[in-house]
């Protein structure tokens, strides 16, 4: 049954990739890549069960955190063209 779940996840990942390629705005692409990352993390966990290696869950946990930080960093960079100090009159920490 985990093989079926892996197949469904693969199909969903392909659909997310289509949205990432179609756009039309850059925020659509960021959203699609974020959804792709969530599915990848579920995929890693499912593959861990398929191959009976629960250590894969550690990788899935780390992937969840990287996915979050990456999405927020890319959003901030696209919005402000900078990851460090705020640009213009935007307050610090604004997204």
């Amino acid at each position: 049954m985990f093989a079926a779940a892996a197949f469904a996840l693969l199909v969903a990942m392909g659909m997310a990739l289509v949205r990432a390629l179609m756009g039309p705005t850059v925020y659509d692409r960021i959203l699609a890549v974020n959804a792709f990352g969530t599915k990848t993390l579920l995929m890693i966990a499912v593959v861990g069960y398929l191959t009976e290696r629960p250590e894969f869950l550690d990788i899935a946990l780390v992937y969840a955190l990287i996915n979050f930080i990456g999405t927020v960093a890319v959003t901030k960079f696209v919005r402000f063209r900078s990851l460090g100090h705020p640009v213009g009159d935007a307050p610090e920490g604004e997204i």
Binding site: A60, N67, F68, V72, T75, R79
Partner: peptide, 23 residues
């Protein structure tokens, strides 16, 4: 670990959604 994955998702998913919508 499985439950921790869910907890992380429950905290990070609304934050990315909000950051994207606001941006």
């Amino acid at each position: 670990k499985l439950v921790l994955i869910l907890v992380f998702l429950a905290f990070t998913s609304p934050m990315t959604s909000h950051a994207l919508a606001r941006a």
